[in-house]
């Protein structure tokens, strides 16, 4: 079975902390250059740029976009929801809108939240405060992601902020989530005892970071369904490797 590289956690200009260069075309191009075939587009509590990224990827060829969103729970734990198509993601997005406060973004302080098309033309701005937490606790957020047909991944569990580990002390063993994600700084092997598939992604906010961390998967073809089979360990599809671990000084 062929091996594909997946970077399933990449932000766009819609995230206030995302670089202004992080447009759909730039993200797709960077992924292509790095040999990333499965590209998860996940902005903070929002997903308006997913359609543009899907279209940019279709035009560029060789990259498949996985529609996704990075939900902030009430405990400020980040959870990735991966979805089979933009429509199912849209249903989850509706729930996030309901559960996110009414606060408005202050672009001068937090950054612009830009909605664009696949040619990188600006269509408008999301005016909600997307860096806020929703009022869903972790278990509720996971329940909704699953209910709307998605796959729930505890994001960057090794990181000192906005992770299960930092906010809630540790990652409970399966099946609280469907999989867990580590950053380029952690050894995925340290997490296997928890009983989850472990992915590694870049959490890129700049084009230069796209594909800086990835998961290698054996799949028949690079599709959402095949990806999920691999993460569930079904049909011989599986995770076979990762980008290198970056050692940091303690």
């Amino acid at each position: 079975m062929p091996v594909f590289r997946a970077d399933l956690h990449v932000h766009t200009v819609l995230s206030p902390c995302g670089d202004m260069e992080q447009s759909p075309r730039a993200v797709v191009k960077a992924a292509k250059n790095k040999g990333i075939t499965l590209l998860g587009i996940a902005d903070h509590n929002a997903s308006e740029n997913v359609p543009a990224c899907v279209e940019a990827a279709r035009r560029a060829g060789s990259v498949t976009v996985i529609p996704a969103v990075e939900v902030a729970s009430v405990e400020e734990v980040h959870i990735l929801g991966l979805f089979p198509n933009p429509a199912d993601l849209g249903a989850m997005q509706g729930k996030i809108h309901q559960r996110l406060g009414d606060d408005k973004n202050v672009p001068e302080k937090f950054g612009y939240q830009v909605i664009v098309d696949h040619r990188d033309n600006v269509l408008g701005f999301n005016d909600r405060f997307l860096l806020a937490a929703t009022d869903m606790d972790v278990d509720t957020a996971v329940r909704y992601i699953r209910e709307y047909g998605g796959f729930a991944v505890a994001a960057h569990v090794d990181r000192p902020a906005f992770s299960m580990t930092s906010q809630l002390g540790f990652v409970p063993p399966a099946p609280t989530f469907d999989a867990i994600e580590v950053s380029r700084f952690a050894d995925p092997g340290e997490y296997v005892d928890l009983g989850y598939a472990v992915i590694r992604s870049s959490d890129a906010h700049l084009p230069g970071e796209v594909g800086a961390a990835y998961t290698e998967l054996e799949l028949e073809e690079p599709t959402y369904d095949e990806l999920i089979m691999a993460l569930r360990g079904e049909g011989g599809r599986k995770v076979v490797g990762y980008s290198p671990t970056i050692k940091v000084m303690a």
Binding site: E75, D137, V138, L168, G169, F170, P172
Partner: peptide
């Protein structure tokens, strides 16, 4: 915080 992890 009210998550079950607080008990642990």
């Amino acid at each position: 915080q009210t998550h079950t992890n607080i008990v642990a």
